[in-house]
Lab assay of single mutants.
Amino acid sequence: KRPVSAMFIFSEEKRRQLQEERPELSESELTRLLARMWNDLSEKKKAKYKAREAALKAQSER
């Protein structure tokens, strides 16, 4: 099983909040919005998710 990506971790963290704030969005619209949010995120903020990705990857390799 492959470890999850930093973007996937970000998306899972933000998805529920966005669904509550924007219930009119379809699943595909929500996914596009999350992708745009990820792309607009600064490298400094992405680092938090990339660190979690690395930790999960290291854990799965044990």
Rank of each mutant, 00 (worst) to 15 (best):
K57E: 15
A47M: 07
E24F: 06
E13V: 05
S42G: 09
T31P: 02
A47R: 12
R16N: 06
R62E: 15
E20M: 09
S28V: 09
A51M: 11
S26Q: 08
E24K: 05
K44C: 07
L33H: 13
R32G: 09
P23L: 02
L41N: 01
R36F: 09
A55H: 14
E13W: 02
A54V: 14
V4N: 08
E20I: 08
R62A: 15
E20Q: 14
L25G: 00
K48H: 04
R16E: 08
S26R: 06
L18T: 09
Q19Y: 09
K57A: 10
R2F: 12
K46Q: 08
F8I: 13
F8W: 13
L41Y: 01
P23M: 03
K14Q: 11
R52G: 05
L18N: 00
E21F: 04
F10Y: 15
R36E: 09
A6R: 02
K48S: 12
K57C: 12
S60H: 02
S26C: 03
K44Y: 03
E24W: 09
R62S: 13
E27C: 06
L41A: 06
Q59R: 13
P3D: 12
S5T: 12
S60W: 12
K14L: 08
A51Q: 11
I9C: 10
V4L: 13
L56Q: 09
K45R: 11
F10S: 01
A47W: 06
E13M: 07
E21W: 05
R22G: 03
F8P: 04
A47G: 09
T31W: 04
S26Y: 01
E12C: 05
A58V: 14
L56W: 08
K45D: 11
W38R: 00
L34S: 03
R52I: 07
M7F: 14
M37N: 03
S11I: 14
S28T: 10
S28G: 12
K14E: 04
R16G: 12
R62D: 15
A51T: 12
A47F: 08
P23D: 02
S5C: 06
Q17F: 05
E27P: 10
Q59H: 08
E20H: 09
S42N: 06
M7Y: 14
S5D: 13
Q19D: 03
F10A: 00
E29K: 04
M37C: 05
Q19K: 15
E29L: 03
Q17D: 08
E29P: 00
S28E: 14
E13I: 05
N39P: 01
S11N: 03
E43G: 04
A51Y: 09
D40W: 02
K14W: 06
K14T: 08
E20A: 09
V4G: 09
D40H: 03
F10D: 00
L30R: 08
E21G: 06
K46T: 02
Y49H: 01
K1R: 05
K57T: 11
K1A: 03
L33K: 06
R22H: 15
S26K: 01
K14S: 10
K46G: 00
Q59E: 15
K44G: 13
E29V: 03
K14C: 02
L56S: 15
A6N: 04
N39K: 09
R36M: 08
K44W: 09
R62I: 11
A55D: 12
E20S: 14
P3C: 03
L18Q: 01
R32C: 05
S5W: 02
T31A: 12
R2H: 13
S42K: 03
M7T: 04
R16M: 13
N39F: 11
Y49V: 00
L33V: 10
V4E: 15
E24T: 07
S11T: 14
L41E: 02
A6G: 12
L30S: 05
E24Y: 09
F10E: 00
R32E: 10
